[in-house]
Write a protein that binds this DNA or RNA. Structure first.
Lengths: 69, 69
DNA sequence: TTGTGACTGCCAGTCCGTT
DNA sequence: AAACGGACTGGCAGTCACA
């Protein structure tokens, strides 16, 4: 299990739990929807600063994004 | 508390607990000692793939690197 | 053994459209 | 609403010589 798939699954899971769209989260995190899509599909290798922004946009602590599944 | 300082503190703490040098860890993670130094001093913004490699080099799960202090 | 300043190539992140 | 493709570029990831 790579970090990428772990991160992507967690982000997508949390986002759906909170019933938010990619567009909404991307907007809050000040990144593009297409990029968030790339992250959620495990195709991008985001920096920890971007991950932090996504976590904030989701209203969770960064550590939640790295929890093993 | 930014991710950067959180990550840097955790890495440094774990590395010292295991009594490893930056050079040793950097070598295992296949990155430069100078770069690891930059990460540990919170000056660099590593990608999640690099953080994963550092975690492996330290013998811990990635989530350990993101634990709040 | 760790940190710094200066450098450069490349990729993280953007932006367009299309499905 | 989400994924994908493709083209673009600036900033910084990663390197190096040194202290």
């Amino acid at each position: 299990m790579s970090v990428q798939s772990r991160v992507s699954r967690n982000i997508q899971r949390i986002r759906r739990e909170k019933d938010l769209s990619q567009e909404e989260v991307a907007h809050r995190a000040d990144i593009h929807q297409t990029y968030l899509s790339g992250v959620e599909t495990g195709k991008r290798n985001p920096s920890i600063l971007v991950v932090e922004r996504i976590a904030k946009a989701l209203g969770v602590d960064v550590s939640a994004i790295f929890k093993p599944n």
